[in-house]
């Protein structure tokens, strides 16, 4: 299973161009609410949602697979996937909804899958209403799709030097509050590393619009961006 999950992630990283073509930026929550009837036999979501045949799905984004407390019917397959590092994000939910057993062999989820990418995006957008993390960075995972910039896999593969990142970060913290407060300028603590890297490159290539950030990012090398991502990814 972990091999298959890694293969999926590699596929997601390298076929971003394809994803950009066939995935809407964000789904339609109204359509998603309508499609939810396909899920509602087993799952509840929203205020007062309880575990039923399947676990309740409030706050599913960013949660490790098979991690809802008090839910006792997880398959061994999904528990193993969670232990192997499967975390629910747009990408992983999208793959799971497309074909649950392809992502998690041995899952108990008896659902044949949604073949239309738009349907999946709409259901995921509906689920997103009931997840409030991350609050501060609307562009970031789990809903950051499609990718803003195409980055070569070797750029995403750079392992950042957190000590260098800490020095570089001192420049960020003149404006971005170190305690993660968010007034006027967004917080950047605990930003998932890959999303951070993508966002910085998007500023550097002037795809993201903010002039200060374009300027700050424009002189960062690929290694420096990776170093910053490594540092901020580890902050609480």
């Amino acid at each position: 299973m972990s091999v298959r999950l890694s293969a999926l992630i590699v596929a997601a990283l390298t076929s971003a161009a394809a994803a950009q073509e066939d995935t809407a930026p964000l789904g339609d929550t109204d359509r998603g609410a309508d499609l939810w009837r396909l899920c509602a036999g087993c799952h509840q979501v929203g205020e007062g949602a309880k575990n039923r045949v399947g676990p309740q799905l409030n706050g599913v984004f960013g949660r490790k697979a098979a991690a809802v407390e008090d839910f006792t019917r997880y398959s061994e397959g999904i528990q193993r996937a969670g232990n192997d590092g499967l975390v629910w994000s747009f990408r992983t939910l999208d793959a799971y909804l497309e074909n649950p057993k392809a992502l998690v062999s041995g899952t108990n989820m008896g659902f044949r899958g949604l073949k239309d990418p738009q349907d999946r995006a709409d259901v995921i957008a509906y689920l997103r209403i009931y997840s409030d993390n991350p609050q501060n960075i609307p562009e970031s995972a789990p809903t950051a799709v499609p990718r803003e910039v195409e980055l070569a896999p070797e750029i995403l593969a750079i392992v950042g030097d957190p000590a260098y990142g800490e020095y570089l970060s001192s420049e960020c913290q003149t404006c971005h509050q170190r305690d993660g407060d968010n007034d006027g300028i967004p917080a950047i603590n605990n930003w998932p590393e890959e999303d951070f890297v993508i966002a910085m490159h998007a500023y550097k290539e002037k795809i993201r619009p903010h002039p200060v950030m374009q300027m700050m990012a424009s002189r960062l090398t690929d290694e420096e961006i990776a170093a910053l991502a490594a540092y901020f990814g580890g902050l609480d």
Binding site: S170, Q173, T174, C175, H176, Q177, R178, D179, D181, N182, D183, G184, I185, V212
Partner: peptide, 14 residues
């Protein structure tokens, strides 16, 4: 302007 308010909080905490 709102950004400047955020900056003030950031730099004084820094």
């Amino acid at each position: 302007f709102e950004e400047s308010v955020g900056w003030y909080a950031g730099i004084t905490s820094d």
